[in-house]
């Protein structure tokens, strides 16, 4: 039985003056200090009685240069760690070049929650149900991380290690995420199935991305990322490269997604249902992407 507290348990709020100070503090207190951005995951976990050893919450969102979204036609998009989900949803550059990211961010919780929730927080929290993990993975996101040794780049590939577990080490602070330019003509789509029409966590989430590719027989390449059907996002790359691209081929690719995942039963849904939904929603998402590719403009 989960016994939630009426309020938040004791901790000290710490607001370092610099990244160096923050990383040092976190590294020196590996068990008891945690960084946070919006805190939407952090506070809820603490209140629910998890992370009992936490003594310090380290606010890392007010350090310089974390609150911006920048786009550069050569290097792609950079989203600062303190950028909240609503900013991601509304940003003209994101909408123009990475609409899939805006679509996925929009599906997180509610407007007021998205004022606090950050993209970086969603990634570092590493929940299998995280809505933006798929889009960030398929766009080849690379985290900029500041650790005790200074800055480094941390690709998202290999970043997720289990529910709530990532490649980050004590002292590591993600400061931004960069997405290289998408392959020209890319089209993405996110299908989320919750119990309610909106605002619920995903029972199943399917992110699909497709783009033209002259090296394949089909002239295209498709990728899928599946949420809530394994401890980490399930990725299927390079689908539908064979010709011809028929509805049957899309069905078959959706079937592969179904085979590739190994969900569990939980309060939100059974493994059996989830498997069916991975197939059906993958089919739906792939079709939407395919329609978008044919019509020549990126759909949401």
């Amino acid at each position: 039985m989960r016994e939630a507290h009426p309020g938040l348990p004791d901790f000290d709020y710490v607001r370092p003056a610099s990244l160096e100070e923050a990383s040092r503090f976190l590294a020196e207190n590996p068990q008891s200090a945690r960084p946070f951005m919006g805190g939407t995951d952090t506070f809820v976990r603490l209140r629910d009685g998890f992370w009992k050893e936490t003594r310090y919450l380290v606010d890392v969102k007010n350090l310089d240069g974390r609150a911006e979204i920048t786009f550069d036609p050569r290097n792609g998009l950079t989203v600062g760690a303190a950028v909240n989900m609503n900013q991601v949803v509304a940003d003209p550059q994101v909408r123009a070049h990475y609409p899939l990211l805006a679509q996925a961010a929009h599906r997180v919780a509610s407007y007021q929650l998205r004022t606090r929730a950050t993209l970086i927080g969603n990634l570092c929290n590493a929940s299998p149900a995280g809505d933006t993990l798929g889009a960030c993975l398929l766009f080849g996101g690379i985290l900029r991380v500041h650790g005790v040794e200074g800055f480094r780049d941390q690709p998202l590939a290999g970043f997720f290690q289990g529910p709530g577990r990532t490649a980050l080490q004590p002292g590591d602070i993600a400061t931004s995420i960069r997405f290289p330019l998408p392959v020209p003509g890319s089209v993405g789509h996110y299908e989320k199935l919750g119990r309610n029409v909106l605002s619920d966590l995903a029972i199943v989430g399917v992110t699909a991305l497709g783009h033209p590719d002259s090296s394949t027989a089909s002239g295209h390449r498709f990728h899928l990322a599946l949420a809530s059907v394994g401890p980490v996002p399930v990725i299927l790359r390079d689908l539908l490269t064979q010709a011809p691209l028929t509805p049957e081929a899309l069905d078959e690719a959706a079937g592969r997604a179904m085979e590739a995942c190994h969900p569990i039963d939980d309060v939100r849904g059974s493994a059996r249902y989830r498997k069916f939904m991975v197939r059906n929603l993958s089919r739906r998402a792939l079709n939407r992407v395919w329609e978008g590719l044919q019509s020549g403009h990126c759909c949401e």
Binding site: A4, P6, G7, Y13, G38, G39, T40, F43, V44, R47, L57, D59, N86, A109, S110, Y111, Q112, L113, T115, R116
Partner: peptide, 27 residues
């Protein structure tokens, strides 16, 4: 709910709505 789910605690923080149960006062 004290958990960001119900919205009864919604207020403006710097002109944007937030769940005030999920914001620290010190912030």
């Amino acid at each position: 709910c004290t958990a960001g789910e119900c919205g009864a605690c919604t207020v403006f923080l710097n002109d944007e709505p937030v769940n005030s149960c999920l914001v620290l006062a010190v912030e």
